[in-house]
């Protein structure tokens, strides 16, 4: 565990907490893509199956359980308790265009052709693109609430910090994982446009609004 990894994990935790609090406090999931949230739930489920097979540390297990539970709660809010506030009309990204290629790619490029490894690889590929329905929704409506942009910033920062973690681990331990690194780079690149808008607008107190 190095400082980048810890910062990345904390950023990830902050992101999921911001999202849950936003929905809970406003009693609304307006502006949030239920499709992205569904994809994240699939990501956590397929990656954290190793909770049952591999014990790493208490920290590791707690974090995995936290992400699974937060994701489950988010889905319950979006598709259950507050479903009336979910903005279906703007959440029109076709997730099969992400699920199918990620599934196929994980069958072809993986570390080992076993069920657990393929599911892990699938989750890494899927996570890298899971935010696309959310970004698509923001681009369709042309704006995002400030709280939603804080959520997106924290969520995007997490994988960017992991990139620093991987550089650190390569230097310090000669450990690297090309699948995770490649997907992490893709994931971070997808957020770049958003990061730019966040820094130039939201941090200056303006609403995140896309140019018409």
């Amino acid at each position: 565990m190095n400082i980048f990894r810890l910062a990345g994990d904390l950023s990830h935790v902050v992101a999921v907490i911001i999202l849950l609090l936003k929905i809970w406090k406003t009693r609304s999931c307006a502006g949030i893509s239920g499709k992205s949230q569904l994809l994240f739930a699939i990501v956590y489920l397929t990656r954290y199956l190793d909770l049952f097979t591999t014990y790493v540390s208490l920290y590791n297990s707690i974090m995995k359980i936290l992400f699974l539970s937060a994701s489950g709660a988010t889905l319950y809010f979006m598709y259950g308790k507050f479903r009336g506030t979910y903005d279906h009309n703007h959440d029109t990204f076709r997730i099969e265009f992400l699920l199918i290629p990620c599934g196929l790619l994980s069958l072809v490029i993986n570390h080992e052709f076993t069920v657990m490894e393929i599911l892990w690889t699938f989750s890494i590929y899927l996570e890298s693109v899971a935010i696309l329905p959310q970004l698509f929704m923001v681009s369709k409506t042309g704006e995002a609430e400030s709280i939603t942009s804080h959520y997106l910033f924290a969520l995007g920062s997490y994988r960017a910090l992991y990139l620093l973690n991987w550089i650190h681990r390569y230097i310090a331990e000669s450990h690297y994982d090309l699948i995770a690194i490649f997907a992490g780079i893709v994931q971070t690149i997808l957020y770049c446009d958003f990061f730019y808008l966040y820094i130039t607008k939201v941090l200056k107190g303006k609403k995140l609004q896309l140019p018409a």
Binding site: R5, D9, H12, D50, T54, V56, S57, N60, M63, K64, F67, H111, E112, E117, W120, T121, Y162, N165, S174, H175, Y176, D177, L178, I179, A180
Partner: peptide
Amino acid sequence: EEPSNDHDEL
């Protein structure tokens, strides 16, 4: 060494 899935990373 074969690079592999590190179960520690989240």
